[in-house]
């Protein structure tokens, strides 16, 4: 990458304060094409999204469960504030239970994988 993800995020947030989000987004896409970093656009957009959620006082939540059956998205979403972003992921490695990650660095791990790991440590 020519510039780091954080540089793009900072630039976008700065630009969006001066113009509309749409104009800033257009400018960002043009810039990514110019620098050749368009292939990393997914990562950059997610980082921007995360920054915007945090700036509005929300949290970036990630909920992982082992199987689709237990994933009750609506029930989960009601537990959090509207400002929060809640993402869901199926991760069979967890075996059972749920793992919630907050802002990428706080974790509540209530999975069977974790319990088994502790048991056999």
């Amino acid at each position: 990458m020519k510039y780091s993800v954080n540089n793009y995020v900072g630039a976008f947030i700065g630009a969006s304060k001066k113009t509309s989000y749409e104009e800033a987004a257009d400018g960002l896409i043009k810039l990514l094409k110019k620098t050749g970093d368009i292939k990393h656009s997914k990562k950059i957009v997610e980082a921007i999204h995360k920054k915007l959620v945090n700036e509005k006082g929300g949290k970036w939540m990630n909920i992982e469960v082992a199987r689709e059956l237990v994933l009750k998205k609506e029930a989960f979403k009601h537990k959090f504030s509207e400002k929060d972003h809640v993402g869901f992921r199926i991760n069979p490695e967890l075996v059972a239970g749920v793992r919630i990650t907050i802002n990428g660095e706080g974790e509540l791990n209530n999975t069977l994988q974790n319990k088994l790991n502790k048991l056999f440590k």
Partner: peptide, 28 residues
């Protein structure tokens, strides 16, 4: 004898690794 003590923990993720060096996000 297993006691379940699930609690909130600080975690990070390895974002880059090579030559014995790891870059980790999170863990502020």
């Amino acid at each position: 004898g297993y006691q379940d003590d699930t609690k909130f923990e600080h975690v990070g993720l390895v974002t880059e690794v090579g030559d014995g060096i790891a870059k980790i996000s999170g863990l502020s």
